[in-house]
């Protein structure tokens, strides 16, 4: 897993997400302090940084999950495909269908595996009939690299799977609604190395169709899966660029200390 296949490091130049001067306040806490970033399409972008620096907060700005936190105030401009997602005309529910999210802790619904995956397509009306829905579910589970393990027990509870399987189920659930962007907040923190490897492989797969933004505490993981890396520190975006460059030749001294393990 550790080799960096040169082919994979090709970065498309088309920008998917543009953030300009984003600030986030939680009551009196100033969590994000003026972040500017351009996230490319069909690319894996990794957010790294010490705990509490605002990675999750910024990630949640991208699908407006911060709206659900009382007291959270987001200012600045975030555009996806040139559309301002904080425009009053934008319905966050519609936005979240387009920007899927995988959470740090696997959180399958306490329903069957099938229903877990089918739920999103159902509420968005993506399937006209049962056969289409079955197709969507199978495709999503295949993309989530879990189809072979669960195809015989689609109607068993999703909560009965192992942690790694649950996380892949959650990924399948997120891709089932055909989002354009997939946000992942430390998707592997609860997984063992084998499951982590599976998820990483999967992320690499997903890059063909989605822009993936992944928050991770593992520098190795960031180096393995991402093409671009953003380093956050105390609410600032300190450095952002090609992953190879960040890890081999960082410009900022804080980045260097962090990746060499001196701060964090």
């Amino acid at each position: 897993m550790n080799d960096m296949r040169p082919m994979d490091n090709v970065v498309t130049d088309k920008t998917k997400i543009t953030a300009r001067d984003v600030h986030v306040h939680y009551g009196t806490t100033h969590a994000i302090k003026g972040v500017d970033v351009d996230i490319a399409d069909r690319t894996v972008t990794a957010f790294i940084g010490p705990s509490g620096c605002g990675k999750s907060t910024f990630l949640r700005c991208l699908n407006r999950m911060n709206d659900t936190i009382p007291g959270a105030v987001v200012t600045g401009k975030i555009r996806i495909d040139e559309a301002d997602i904080y425009d009053p005309c934008v319905d966050p529910v519609q936005l979240r269908a387009k920007v899927g999210m995988v959470f740090q802790k696997p959180n399958p619904f306490p329903k069957s595996i099938y229903d877990n995956v089918a739920y999103g397509p159902k509420i968005h009306g993506l399937a006209r009939n049962k056969a289409e829905l079955d197709d969507i579910v199978e495709k999503a589970l295949r993309r989530g690299a879990i189809w072979d393990e669960v195809k015989d027990r689609l109607h068993a509870p999703g909560t009965g799977l192992s942690g790694g399987q649950q996380q892949r189920l959650c990924i399948a659930r997120a891709v089932a609604t055909e989002p354009e962007i997939l946000l992942m907040d430390e998707p592997c923190s609860a997984l063992d190395p084998i499951a982590t490897a599976q998820v990483e492989e999967l992320i690499d797969e997903l890059r063909r169709n989605f822009s993936v933004v992944i928050v991770t505490h593992s520098m190795q993981q960031a180096a393995r899966v991402s093409q671009r890396t953003a380093f956050f520190h105390l609410g600032h975006l300190v450095e952002y660029g090609e992953t190879g460059k960040i890890f081999t030749n960082p410009e900022d001294s804080r980045t260097e200390s962090y990746i060499s393990g001196r701060i964090g």
């Binding site: 699908n63 999950m65 659900t68 529910v93 519609q94 979240r96 269908a97 387009k98 899927g100 999210m101 995988v102 959470f103 802790k105 959180n107 399958p108 619904f109 306490p110 739920y119 999103g120 509420i123 968005h124 959650c170 659930r173 997120a174 089932a176 609604t177």
Partner: peptide, 17 residues
């Protein structure tokens, strides 16, 4: 658990859903 609400909102369910 709040994670269930997050999960539902995360796949684009409305709050009511």
């Amino acid at each position: 658990p709040p994670s269930i609400r997050d999960a539902a909102l995360g796949v684009g369910a409305s709050k009511m859903q």
